[in-house]
């Protein structure tokens, strides 16, 4: 699905990613953990193609093709979805209208017929039902006046409707209480499938109690410094990120990456 080789990237001229390697196969869930400022959010933004995040070296292959050639909206249409850490408010733009515009833009890109409002409404109802979300969110403007939990659920809901191949959840757990966290995690688990890969970016282990990853990576100073199974996350939680700096962890284990 995704293969990143020796990726170097800068933000505003400042080097953030410094030779990152990562391989995610179809249907896998990978967690990326790391201290603040390690480059976790930068990774998501670089993959999604955000302006101002400049790749200075390395390559990113997505479904075997060069991802970095594509515009951000093309990447989205190719099936890359970024669930934002801070979902953006768009005042006056109806949530349903926004999502339908997005879905139809993607369908058009793929040469599929666009959905009319009745067809779309039916789809929305199905997805709301699966995720146990009330349709109240759909009548409001995009994220406007949403609580932290509502915003994150809206992201997962968008993901459910857009059905991406690769979803990156950027600190989706931040700012959520335990109940909201569980709801969001359940939503994500329902969307796990053989042909969908998910990268969960998080600072804390607690999300991984609910979304159990196939692989856990530790990102520090712009590089993956360790990879392992779900136990690695628990160890990190127990010992803290300083443990890494003290050399308490084994160097990158190729076999652990399946």
């Amino acid at each position: 699905m995704l293969e990143i080789k020796n990726l170097h990237a800068t933000v505003g001229g400042k080097p953030i990613l410094k030779g990152l390697n990562l391989k995610v196969s179809d249907g896998e869930v990978h967690a990326i953990m790391g201290p603040n400022g390690a480059g976790k959010s930068t990774l998501g933004n670089v993959i999604a193609g955000r302006d101002g995040y400049d790749v200075t070296a390395g390559e990113v292959l997505y479904k075997g093709a060069d991802l970095l050639q594509l515009e951000p909206e093309e990447r989205a249409c190719e099936g890359i979805f970024l669930a934002f850490q801070y979902p953006v408010e768009i005042p006056g733009v109806n949530n349903t209208y926004f999502l339908r515009a997005a879905l139809n833009a993607q369908r058009k890109y793929r040469g599929e017929p666009e959905l009319d409002s009745m067809q779309f409404l039916k789809l929305v109802r199905e997805k709301l039902h699966i995720l146990h979300i009330s349709d109240d969110l759909m009548h409001r403007a995009v994220n406007e006046g949403f609580s932290g939990g509502e915003k994150k659920r809206n992201e997962i809901f968008q993901m459910a409707v857009l059905e991406p191949s690769l979803a990156i959840l950027d600190e989706t757990d931040s700012g959520l209480d335990i109940d909201a966290l569980r709801l969001v995690a359940e939503g994500v688990n329902r969307l796990r499938s053989e042909d969908r890969s998910i990268i969960v970016v998080t600072h804390y282990q607690r999300l991984l109690d609910h979304i159990v990853p196939d692989v856990v990576h530790v990102l520090a100073d712009g590089k993956i410094v360790a990879s392992g199974d779900a136990d690695l996350a628990l160890k990190l939680e127990e010992k803290g990120y300083t443990w890494l700096e003290q050399g308490g962890i084994q160097p990158l284990n190729e076999e652990a990456r399946v």
Partner: peptide
């Protein structure tokens, strides 16, 4: 017109032009 609003739209697959008119239209709704 936020760079962040624009990127949010683009990341969902909406083109730049459609994103601008959508955001402006929302702004003028009242």
């Amino acid at each position: 017109i936020g760079e962040d609003q624009m990127f949010y739209c683009l990341q969902r697959g909406i083109s730049e032009e459609d994103a601008v008119s959508m955001i402006v239209d929302g702004f003028c709704k009242q």
